[in-house]
């Protein structure tokens, strides 16, 4: 994601701005009172008005409800992403059907999901984090030498026990840019760890289960320890709770439900590679990919323990 040309170069004076959108006026009133001390709070019940507000002034974080008449949350987030790409987008919702969760990832590229009713302290911390990242994005970027540029290795790792997935990825990547990307395949956790050790990986295309075992923990730790790797979920599982965890804790870039069309796969990988390049050239942007650390979920399973040990031993790669 490139910074817009007209990025304000003045220091972030005064209080940062947060915009809340919900069709229930009482939610807005409550949120205004909650956040008014720390932020300049804007609020509206209309998605269209929200877009106008985003056009009119710098907004650091946008918090939107999903189910709203006229313009649903997903649509608002999608438009907000175009109108104001540096505004961090959050969804605050009482109930999320699977489609809207997937939509907010794929089209809205959201930062976090927050459920109604929320925990006030956690919500404050999440908004603070979002605002902090948005403010960093505002500062003039110190260009970082591109590691290798177009010639640098940008490995793709497919994690899935179905060989069909790696075949699909290889065929679309090869057809598009022959010889440009090496595609590795891991059908078990050991291979994943070995590949990560041996090669620089740009994009991971991963299933959420491997050999009957849940590997979302693996994807989450991956993102936590190597934030410039971009994770795409390509899976047969359809579960909105899992998806919400994947966005909050693994900042997955795309979610694709099997069977997936070659075109969709290619577009997602391209977009993932682009995101990876942006992350590499701007360490600041990497912070946008910060993920929640859930102490309660770490090191539960045997897989998680193995992964944790692995990442502890793995030296951070130079950027």
């Amino acid at each position: 994601m490139a910074l817009p040309a007209h990025a304000p170069d003045r220091p972030p004076a005064g209080r940062p701005t947060v915009l809340f959108v919900d069709d229930e006026e009482r939610i807005l009133r409550s949120l205004r009172m909650m956040f008014a001390r720390d932020y300049k709070v804007l609020s509206t019940t209309s998605g269209h008005e929200a877009i106008d507000l985003l056009r009119g002034e710098r907004v650091h974080a946008l918090v939107s409800d999903q189910r709203m008449p006229i313009m649903p949350g997903v649509e608002l987030l999608r438009q907000a992403r175009q109108v104001s790409p540096n505004t961090m987008r959050l969804l605050l919702t009482g109930y999320s059907d699977f489609e809207s969760v997937a939509g907010s990832i794929n089209e809205g590229e959201i930062f976090r999901f927050v459920s109604k009713p929320w925990n006030a302290d956690e919500f404050r911390a999440t908004v603070a984090k979002a605002v902090d990242i948005a403010q960093q994005l505002e500062l003039p970027e110190v260009p970082v030498a591109r590691a290798g540029g177009a010639s640098g290795e940008e490995g793709i790792l497919v994690i899935d026990d179905d060989p069909g997935t790696v075949d699909l990825v290889r065929s679309v990547v090869e057809a598009h840019q022959p010889g440009r990307h090496r595609v590795d395949w891991a059908a078990d956790v050991e291979t994943v760890l070995r590949v990560l050790e041996e090669r620089e990986i740009a994009v991971v295309v991963s299933e959420v289960r491997l050999g009957g075992e849940d590997i979302t923990e693996l994807i989450k730790s991956l993102k936590r320890h190597q934030p410039h790797i971009v994770a795409l979920a390509l899976t047969g599982y359809q579960d909105s709770a899992m998806l919400i965890h994947l966005i909050n804790q693994a900042q997955i870039h795309r979610y694709m439900l099997k069977p997936v069309r070659p075109n969709t796969t290619l577009r997602a990988i391209e977009s993932g590679l682009e995101r990876h390049r942006a992350l590499k050239s701007s360490p600041r942007l990497t912070s946008r990919h910060q993920v929640e650390v859930m102490p309660s979920t770490t090191a539960h399973s045997a897989v998680a323990k193995r992964i944790l040990g692995f990442f502890r031993n793995l030296a951070p790669r130079p950027n």
Partner: peptide, 13 residues
């Protein structure tokens, strides 16, 4: 769930 969680959201807050 959505109908209840919305008022619950602001009531709790």
């Amino acid at each position: 769930a959505h109908e209840i969680n919305t008022p619950l959201g602001y009531v709790k807050n």
